[in-house]
């Protein structure tokens, strides 16, 4: 198997996607004794290298965070480049989509696009692994992330053994798919007590911006200046 894993997070080395990939590949290497090629889609000046890795591989996994309910712009640009390639050689392409939202349902819409993209690329769709609740992963103590990261190792080990994502692990990682009544109650309680905002508030305070957290810098009003549409001729940029 010639596997290449693309990290589609704009945060690149500092990303949660990198951590998930690292654990996936730890599991992968446990079976193969060897690792796979990893490429950062967002890295400037490496476009040709990324495309060459794609050409040379027969298995491709693209990992990215959900950005505005879809793939990040840099990943879409990469898809457009892949679309231009010759697709006579059939590849296996799979995806791992992670998001800050706790429920997996938020990412199923982009997964439908990803499946269709594989048809366009004449590729075998290996499926999309969806994982929610990943934002803050790097701030969590290891006892909180141990089980999740272990699952990604198992996912990688299974992929090395079979060339496919484990359906069982995919289902486990996609939990919760939607919020259960109990979980909704917990979220409401956390919101009411302010506990739900702990992560954001601690970061806001750390940066001395807590007092400005509800700022509306682009509101129309004299203190903010006119919008382009307020000018005598609307803009045509």
């Amino acid at each position: 198997m010639r596997l290449v894993v693309y990290n589609g997070s704009p945060r690149m080395q500092g990303s949660n996607s990198r951590i998930l990939i690292q654990h996936f590949l730890d599991g992968y290497a446990r079976f193969t004794g060897d690792s796979a090629a990893v490429a950062m889609i967002g890295k400037q000046g490496e476009r040709e290298k990324h495309l060459e890795l794609f050409r040379q591989s027969d298995h491709v996994i693209i990992v990215f965070p959900l950005y505005t309910d879809c793939m990040p712009g840099i990943v879409k640009a990469f898809f457009e480049e892949l679309f231009e390639l010759d697709h006579s050689e059939r590849k296996h392409i799979g995806f791992i989509v992670q998001s800050g939202f706790p429920e997996a349902v938020q990412s199923v819409y982009v997964a439908r696009y990803l499946e269709k993209l594989c048809t366009r690329l004449n590729a075998e769709y290996s499926g999309t692994v969806i994982r929610g609740g990943v934002e803050g992963l790097q701030m969590m103590p290891s006892w909180m992330t141990k089980r999740l990261l272990r699952k990604f190792e198992q996912l990688g080990e299974h992929y090395a053994r079979t060339g496919a994502f484990s359906a069982l692990l995919r289902a486990e990682l996609a939990r919760p798919f939607t919020l259960s009544p109990l979980r909704k109650l917990i979220v409401r309680l956390m919101a009411a007590t302010g506990a739900a905002n702990f992560y954001w508030n601690s970061r806001l305070k750390q940066h001395g911006a807590f007092g400005k957290r509800f700022a509306r810098p682009f509101s129309r009003g004299p203190e903010n200046g006119p919008t382009a549409a307020d000018t005598s001729e609307s803009s045509d940029t």
Partner: peptide, 26 residues
């Protein structure tokens, strides 16, 4: 009506730094 031809503008990709949420809100 404002019409923005994005191809002609200086626009960068979001870096996911969240400074817009926790350093300079908004």
């Amino acid at each position: 009506a404002d019409l923005f031809h994005l191809a002609t503008m200086d626009l960068r990709y979001c870096r996911g730094c969240w400074n817009c949420w926790w350093t300079t809100p908004g």
